[in-house]
């Protein structure tokens, strides 16, 4: 198993803004590679450069031995792309949409027919294939959006936030689909700002913020960034800067950050900290509604590295 996608020193500037700022990573054949980062991190811009949609300001990209800069045609046929937006024709049926995108990848006749049928099956929408896409729910649209990217059985599938804004059931369906495609041999580049998805799916992960990759590795390697510490999530009625400062002064607290409606505390020894933590919060007038102690996850890694929550 060799490297199938290699990105070196990739830069994209929009005027002053470096949307992608010296990004390098390599994706091994057969793996699911996750690109995790908050909105505006530069994930879509990176994927757009890999799929030959926008030209990099600097750097190089190789896909299956072909340079994006010199052989975009070959790169495009190797790739399947699932864009962040639902890029489908609302007044065409799912079947018509899929047939169109299949033809755009050079499929025709019987091969097209069976590819469309297979993709509809994979999306779990074979029974509603003749309905217009505009009548579908958000989740169903997402599933067809993915199906349209895999008709030609690409070696590498680029998926840009494929689960944004959908119900949990559709999300699970999509995550299972990704696993299934990967099990069948497809290499996947998966971007998301949901750390649970990336944790669940990906063999290796790169965390991106402000156009830069700030950490990368397997899930366990990334957890080590937080270095064997416990993560204490304290839900309180109100989080003020003053409260946060007081918490940081507690002995044994390595780091304290604000997440939505809660404070996340990193500590090597949660047992000795919990009591002091609750006492401090109560004395500051912040009512504690729940406390959970967990292993570090990608959220805490991101928090640790950037001091902010992924969902901000």
């Amino acid at each position: 198993m060799g490297t199938i996608v290699e990105v070196r020193g990739l830069v994209k500037r929009f005027g002053e803004l470096a949307a992608v700022d010296d990004v390098s990573f390599a994706i091994e054949q057969g793996e699911i590679f996750g690109l995790l980062g908050p909105n505006g991190a530069g994930k879509t811009t990176t994927i757009s450069m890999v799929s030959c949609l926008i030209d990099p300001t600097a750097g190089s990209i190789t896909v299956d031995g072909n340079e994006v800069a010199t052989a975009p045609g070959a790169v495009k046929s190797t790739l399947g792309v699932v864009p962040q937006e639902i890029a489908l024709y609302p007044t065409l049926s799912a079947q018509e949409n899929l047939a169109f995108w299949g033809q755009m990848y050079g499929l025709s006749g019987g091969a097209l027919k069976s590819a469309v049928a297979e993709a509809l099956e994979l999306a779990g929408l074979a029974d509603r294939a003749k309905e217009r896409v505009e009548k579908y729910s958000g989740g169903m649209k997402r599933r067809i959006n993915i199906a349209a990217g895999i008709l030609h059985k690409p070696k590498v599938l680029l998926m840009d936030e494929p689960t944004v804004g959908i119900d949990p059931q559709s999300r699970n369906h999509i995550l299972e689909t990704v696993k299934q495609l990967n099990a069948a041999g497809m290499t996947v580049l998966y971007t998301s700002h949901y750390m649970e998805e990336v944790e669940y799916l990906c063999d290796r992960i790169a965390i991106m913020d402000h156009g830069k990759i700030i950490a990368s590795g397997t899930l366990n390697e990334l957890r080590d960034v937080v270095g064997g510490m416990d993560v204490v999530d304290v839900k309180v009625t109100e989080v003020t800067d003053c409260v946060l400062d007081r918490v940081r002064e507690i002995e044994g607290v390595k780091q304290a950050d604000r997440t939505d409606g809660a404070i996340q505390v990193l500590t090597p020894s949660s047992g000795s900290v919990l009591g002091k933590l609750v006492a401090t919060l109560e004395s500051e007038g912040a009512h504690v509604t729940s406390i959970t102690v967990t292993e570090p996850n990608l959220e805490s890694v991101f928090l640790h590295l950037t001091g902010k929550s992924l969902r901000d």
Partner: peptide, 14 residues
């Protein structure tokens, strides 16, 4: 606007 143009441009067609 709906990105189907971008999607078309990510297919092998120029």
């Amino acid at each position: 606007r709906e990105q189907t143009l971008a999607r078309m441009m990510s297919t092998p067609s120029g």
